[in-house]
Simulated scan of single mutants.
Amino acid sequence: MDPFERVALGRTGVTVTRLGMGLAPLGGLYSAVGDDTATAAIDEAWRHGVRFFDTAPLYGSGLSERRSGAALSGRDDFTLSTKVGRLVTPGRTEDPGMWSEGPQEITWDFSGEGVRRSHRESLERLGLDRVDVLHLHDPDDHYVQAVTEALPALVSMRAEGTIGAVSAGMNQSAMLTEFARTGQFDCLLLAGRYTLLDQSGLADLLPECERRGISVIAGGVYNSGVLADPRPGAYYDYRPAPPAVVARAQAMARLCERHGVPLRAVALQFPLAHPAVAAVLIGVRSPEEAADAVAMARVPIPGGLWRDLVAAWLLDPTVPVP
C-alpha cells in the first residue's frame, strides 16, 4: 500500500493520508511519555510523509492536544482530528488509564454548548486555529443527547466552516451504524472492531458506510497491542488479553513468519482492503514506533498468506483482503 496516498473523507474536501497517527499514547496512555519524545514521534511521522493525526481532550486530560499542537505548529498541509463529549475541568482524573500533568477531571457533556466549548478549548490547548475533523467521542451511554444536541451543533459548525468533517469515534459498530443512517456524518472512527481478530464491524457499519459514501477510519488495528506483540500479558481491548485471544494471535504470527512478514504489517494493512475504509490510525508513543508503523505499511503481503489464514480458520473467507 502507499501509506501517503491522500484520500477524501466522504464527500468533503478534507483529505487524509491512508496511514495516520493516533496520539493517545502521547497523553501518557498506560505509561508516561516525555515532551521531547512526544515531539520526536510526530517529527518522525512527518519526516516519512504522514499527514493525518488524531488526538482528544481525554488523552492525558488535554496533554496529548497540547503536545500535538506544539509539534504541528508552523506546519501546513496536514489533517488533524480531535473529539468532543468530554470536557477537561479542574479536579482529579477518574480514568486510571490516562496520565496527566496535574489534577484534572474529565466530565461528560454532549450538549450543543458543550460541543462548542470543547472545540474552543481544544483549539486553545492545541494553539492552532483549526481542527479538520471533529468526532463525537464514545457516546455509548449518551445516544439521545448526542443525536439531538451534539450532532446538530457539529452540522452547524461544518456549515459555518469551523470544521471540515463531522464524525464519531467508538469501540462499537452498532451505534456508529445508527449514526451513519442519519445521513449527517462524513466519516466514522471505528476502534478495534475491524481487525484481524474482530471483524464485527463488517456485519453492519462497513456495508452501510459503503452504500452511503461515508468514510471509515479504522483505529485500534492492533487491538490494544496483542496483534503487535502476541505474548502473555499483552493487552486486548485495553485490558490483559485472555489466553484464547493470545493463542489465536500467536497462531497468526506463526503463519506470518512462514511467509516472511511481521504480524504487525498484516494487521495494519488488512482493514484497508475494504472499500469503505479510508485510513488506519496507529497509536505511537516514540519516534521508533512511528518509523515502525511506516515500515509495516510498506511491507508487501503475499497473497498466499491470506489464503493460509483462511485455510487455518483464522480468517473468514468472505472478508476482503488486500
Rank of each mutant, 00 (worst) to 15 (best):
M1L: 14
P3I: 06
F4T: 01
E5V: 10
L9Q: 10
G10Q: 08
G10P: 00
G13R: 14
G13Y: 02
T15N: 11
M21Q: 12
P25L: 07
P25M: 07
G27N: 02
L29T: 00
L29W: 11
L29G: 01
V33S: 05
G34M: 07
T39W: 09
D43N: 14
D43V: 05
R47F: 03
L58G: 05
R66A: 12
R66E: 15
S68T: 15
S68Y: 02
A70G: 07
D76S: 15
T79P: 02
T79Y: 03
S81C: 12
V84K: 02
R86V: 14
L87K: 02
V88K: 04
T93E: 10
D95C: 08
G97K: 13
W99M: 14
W99V: 15
E101Y: 13
G102C: 04
Q104H: 15
I106P: 03
W108L: 15
D109Q: 09
S122I: 01
E124P: 01
E124W: 04
L126G: 06
H135Q: 14
H135N: 14
H135F: 14
D141C: 08
V144F: 06
Q145D: 14
T148I: 12
E149G: 00
V155R: 12
V155E: 13
S156M: 13
R158F: 03
A159C: 06
G161F: 03
T162H: 01
S167N: 10
A168Q: 11
M170S: 07
S173D: 12
M175G: 06
L176Q: 11
T177D: 09
R181Y: 10
R181V: 00
G183W: 09
G183C: 09
Q184V: 04
F185T: 12
L190N: 01
S200E: 12
D204V: 07
L206K: 09
P207A: 07
E210H: 07
R211P: 02
R211N: 11
G219P: 08
G220L: 00
Y222L: 09
G225K: 06
A234P: 00
Y235F: 14
Y236I: 07
D237A: 13
R239N: 05
A241V: 12
A241P: 04
P243I: 14
R248A: 15
A249K: 11
A251S: 14
A253L: 09
R254E: 15
L255R: 13
E257P: 03
G260K: 11
A267R: 04
A273D: 00
A279T: 02
I282R: 01
V284R: 05
E289R: 13
D292V: 12
A293D: 08
R298A: 13
R298H: 06
P302N: 11
L305P: 01
W306I: 00
A312Y: 00
V321P: 00
